[in-house]
Design a protein around this nucleic acid. Structure first.
Length: 353
DNA sequence: AACCATCCCAACCGCAAATCC
DNA sequence: GGGATTTGCGGTTGGGATGGT
């Protein structure tokens, strides 16, 4: 049964002929598509509007890039997929000239197999259970693990979190009600995740009782800790144009998070923070190690303790100090991404401690 | 050459969100 | 406000291309 938009007339299906392509291109280049459901009639095509739209978007648009994916594009897909999961349309926005369908096909036909061949779960990007011990035993196996990154915290994004509905009000971070959505960003605006960091880090600090502060319609909401020692960029989906790339660079360096949904910026580099849902907050019952991790990162009231070594998720409620926060890494990575504040709000967003 | 299996990707389907009226 | 319609998305399918026997 056809879509309801094409019930009224007999429509052709299947592959498009060159003649049909020409009709569609001629029509859209002169008139624009307008309402897709009226396109086939106007263009003289025996197709439904949905089919016309798909053909234009995925194949006929002049700005589309053709040909095989470059290594850089492949790397970008893997990096973004690690954070977003199967959000093909979002991933494709990081690849100029590529469509969601193309990215999805490339993933399913190529990247997925590569990851599996490397012993990685293509959903979580973590080592598959069957490979965990063998890779420890055999050091040579590590030579092939170009992509694998050891998850550094229980906040690592997993598919359950991604695929389930986002819960903006976290259990352990009580954010005030978000302010009304700002006006849409300027079309040419590239989201800036942070600003240049030029102050030496010192002392352990804890960010508590964050408050929203509206900075600039072009920027995400800024969340400041009560002690005002540090600023976080924070964004909800409503405050960022979904079509706006967050980086002017097509590459998101491995291990560098970015904002999406209700995520908080993982400023020091590993994971964007995603609040676990209630059922996931319970201490894991079956694995002792998981319990230890849990106890390390939560206190008895399920507040985040923070801490831990290496690159730590940057999140309100976390504690950081010079031993677990690699400023050089952050600064160089942000610079390499071209992620700078625009000058008008530099002062407000600067790290001032 | 014929057959079969697998791969690849354009296109379809169903659903949900957004928009219209 | 609510139903109808349109748009956008992700999962899936079908058939041509390719490779192996």
């Amino acid at each position: 049964m056809g879509h309801h938009c094409c019930n009224k007339q007999k429509v052709k299906r299947g592959l498009w002929s060159p003649e049909e392509d020409e009709k569609l291109v001629n029509y859209i280049t002169t008139h624009g598509h307008g309402c897709w459901s009226s396109v086939p009639k106007q263009a003289g095509l025996q197709r439904c509007g949905k089919s016309c739209r798909l053909r234009w978007i995925n194949y006929l648009r002049p700005e589309l890039k053709r040909g095989s994916f470059s290594e850089q594009e492949e790397r970008t897909i893997i990096d973004v997929h690690r954070i977003l999961g199967n959000r093909w349309a979002q991933i494709a926005k990081h690849l100029p000239g590529r469509t969601d369908n193309e990215v999805k096909n490339f993933w399913n036909s190529c990247i997925k197999k590569k990851l599996i061949a490397q012993g990685l779960d293509p959903k979580t990007h973590n080592l598959l259970p069957s490979h965990q011990f063998s890779s420890n035993k055999n050091n040579n196996a590590c030579n092939n693990l170009h992509i694998y990154q050891e998850p550094t915290s229980i906040f690592s994004v997993n598919s359950q979190m991604r695929d389930g509905p986002m819960n903006a009000s976290s259990l352990f971070i009580t954010l005030p009600p978000p302010p009304p959505p700002p006006p849409p960003p300027h079309p040419s605006f590239a989201y800036t995740a942070s600003t240049q960091i030029h102050t030496p880090f010192h002392e352990t600090m804890t960010i508590i009782n964050p408050s929203y502060e509206y900075q600039n319609p072009n920027l995400a909401w800024n969340v400041k800790g009560q002690n005002s020692q540090v600023s976080f960029d924070f964004a909800s989906r409503s405050s960022i144009d979904q079509t706006t790339p967050i980086s002017s660079s097509p590459i998101i360096p491995s291990g560098f998070g970015f904002l999406d949904e209700n995520l908080m910026w993982g400023a020091c580099g590993v994971e964007p923070f995603e609040p676990p849902r209630q059922e996931e907050m319970q201490p894991p019952q079956q694995e002792k190690r998981a319990q230890e991790v849990y106890e390390t990162e939560f206190d008895e009231t399920n507040e985040v303790k923070g801490g831990g070594g290496g690159h730590q998720d940057m999140q309100i409620g976390s504690s950081f100090n010079s031993s677990n926060f690699d400023l050089d890494f952050v600064e160089s990575t942000m610079m390499s991404c071209g992620m700078y504040c625009n000058s008008s709000s530099l002062d407000q967003l600067a790290w001032d401690f």
